[in-house]
């Protein structure tokens, strides 16, 4: 289960999945340029002491302080100019970004370098989510620009369900190389 797992975007899905991945032997690396705001506490895995801190760095501190899991943090925005450096040495990349452009950037990198990439994503209304490997994933744009996201906390339980599936999919991959997709709707989980 060793390796270097890079989680891109540690907001709702990314931070929650990271907490559930604290027992893997692989090194965890977090990338996120954003800072923790009070509204994030309702739907993301951050605690009050993280307010104002960079999300990647705050998550690194939380995993170290709560569970003794040492991780790396890159408090930067991933873009075309730094993607090669930030993802260097990655044995698995997890896409938990919140926008199509960044997801496409990860896809291009993964395809160019043959790095395994798994995506986690959810719908705006919090009724549907999926965990899907790069070879079967299509990055969706928002229905309308600036569409409301999952910040209010209403969708926290469902975020937890998707993140749990993501963590298990990653565990399975690290253990056996398996690449399992999961589609989750609010009323059921359909294993594919």
């Amino acid at each position: 289960m060793s390796g270097r797992v890079v989680i891109c975007g540690v907001g709702a899905l990314g931070s929650t999945a990271a907490v559930l991945l604290r027992n893997v032997e692989a090194d965890l690396v977090f990338i996120d340029f954003d800072r923790v705001e009070s509204k994030n506490l309702a739907a993301q895995a951050f605690t009050k002491v993280a307010l104002g801190k960079n999300k990647a760095e705050a998550l690194r501190l939380q995993l170290a302080n709560f569970w003794g899991k040492k991780c790396e943090a890159f408090p930067v925005r991933l873009g075309p100019d730094n993607v090669e450096v930030l993802l260097a040495g990655a044995t698995l990349v997890i896409d938990a970004f919140d926008n199509q452009a960044s997801r496409l950037l990860l896809s291009a990198h993964a395809q160019a370098h043959g790095v395994p990439l798994v995506h986690a994503a959810m719908s705006a209304d919090g009724s549907y989510g999926l965990v899907r490997w790069e070879e079967r994933f299509v990055a969706d744009a928002e229905d309308t620009p600036g569409q409301a996201t999952c910040e209010g906390g209403e969708h926290l339980p469902f975020i937890g369900v998707i993140a749990a599936h993501l963590a298990r999919v990653v565990q399975d991959h690290l253990r056996s190389g398996q690449r399992r997709d999961v589609q989750i709707s609010l009323s059921s989980a359909l294993l594919l």
């Binding site: 907001g11 709702a12 990314g14 919140d98 959810m122």
Partner: peptide
Amino acid sequence: LFLRPKVPFGA
């Protein structure tokens, strides 16, 4: 075939 909502969000 899967007819599904768009999933733009993660972080």
